[in-house]
Each structure stands twice: as structure tokens, then as C-alpha cells.
């Protein structure tokens, strides 16, 4: 397990988290966040904790995974802090330190896998991947799925880019660069 101070340093330097030093703790972000009532800590408190170096607690908070990228906080923040981007960074850091994957990480992975393979996504493909891990959620969506089917709304064939070799070479190179950075 990485120590709090190493993690804080990593967040501030590699992930440009230093910007949160400018936070004046006004709470506009938490006040405008649609899912703040369900978060362990709102964004304001999360940043206070990160600044103080409580990084393990920050990375285990559900806050980062409940962020829906609505950018409500960003347009309200009087200090121009790119709050949503910091949530992205913290999600990546949480994944790096190996937290127990929350539902949203499973969902992101179910979304990324067909994109990596085919370059494009259909809702059916993403849902199928997620449904394997969370059959409850998949089952709950069956009536809706049938309704969509009756409306001819489901694309059952996987979509793909044509130059799939080229596309995959590009992604492979990106992954290599990601590893060394």
C-alpha cells in the first residue's frame, strides 16, 4: 500500500492535482452536485482531505465513482478549479492502487472492451459485458429491453471500424506510451 504522502505527491504532480490548493472551501461544488447527497464526502470535503493528505480515504470514497461528469460544479466554482477532471484522475489513481472495483468501474470496463476490440460500441455489447458481472441489473432491464426490441431499437450486430488493424495498432501504441509514462 502506498503511503498517504506518496499518493498525495502523485496526485499533485503526475495528475496536476496541485490546483486544489486554490480551493477556498466555499462548497458551491457540493451544493450544485446532483449526487452529492449520496456521496461519502462532497467534492469540497474530498478536496480538503486530499490537501491534508488523507489520500487513502479519498481513494476509497464512493465520491469519485458517483461523479457523473455533469460539470455543474465546474461552472459554479469561483476559483476555476477543474473539479470533474480531478475526479477522473482520482478514479484512475484508485484503480492503480487496486481498490475493490465499484460497479461503475465494471461498467466502464464493459464499455471499453468492445471499443478496444471493434472501435465502436453498441449499447447491447456494453450491457452484455456488464450483465455478466451484475445479472441483477441486467435482469431488471429485461422488460425495457423487450420494449426496445419491439420498437426495433436494439442493434444486435457489433459495430466496427473498417480499418480495424490500423485502429488496433494505434491503440496498442497508446497503451505502450501509457505504460512508460
Amino acid at each position: 500500500m502506498m503511503t498517504d504522502s506518496v499518493l498525495r505527491d502523485r496526485f499533485f504532480k503526475k495528475y496536476h492535482g496541485q490546483e486544489i490548493e486554490n480551493c477556498i472551501q466555499c462548497g458551491m461544488c457540493s451544493g450544485s452536485c446532483p449526487l452529492a447527497p449520496h456521496m461519502d464526502f462532497g467534492p469540497r470535503q474530498l478536496f480538503a482531505m486530499a490537501r491534508e493528505g488523507d489520500m487513502n480515504e479519498v481513494l476509497h470514497a464512493n465520491t469519485i465513482w458517483l461523479c457523473v461528469s455533469c460539470y455543474n460544479c465546474v461552472v459554479k466554482c469561483p476559483r476555476g478549479i477543474s473539479i470533474t477532471d480531478h475526479m477522473y484522475s482520482l478514479k484512475k489513481m484508485a484503480t492503480e492502487v487496486g481498490i475493490k472495483p465499484p460497479k461503475m468501474l465494471h461498467l466502464y470496463r464493459s464499455f471499453n472492451a468492445p471499443v478496444e476490440k471493434n472501435g465502436r460500441l453498441t449499447d447491447v455489447m456494453a450491457m452484455a459485458g456488464y450483465g455478466l458481472r451484475h445479472p441483477g441489473a441486467a435482469m431488471a432491464n429485461v422488460p425495457l429491453g423487450l420494449k426496445m426490441l419491439s420498437r426495433k431499437r436494439l442493434e444486435l450486430k457489433p459495430a466496427s471500424v473498417k480499418n480495424i488493424d490500423g485502429f488496433q495498432r494505434v491503440l496498442k501504441k497508446a497503451k505502450e506510451l501509457e505504460r512508460v509514462s
Binding site: L107, Y108, R109, G119, V161, L171, A174, L177, E178
Partner: peptide, 22 residues
Amino acid sequence: QDWNCCGATSYWSTQSIEAYVL
């Protein structure tokens, strides 16, 4: 021609370089 998925929130949340490459 031959566009790919933009990656959106899912890639911003999980990848640092691929999220831009897409």
C-alpha cells in the same frame, strides 16, 4: 470516414493517453 467511438466518460475515467487518442 471510418470514425471510432470517442471514448467519452468511460475513457476519461480509466485511461490517460487512450482517452485522447480516440
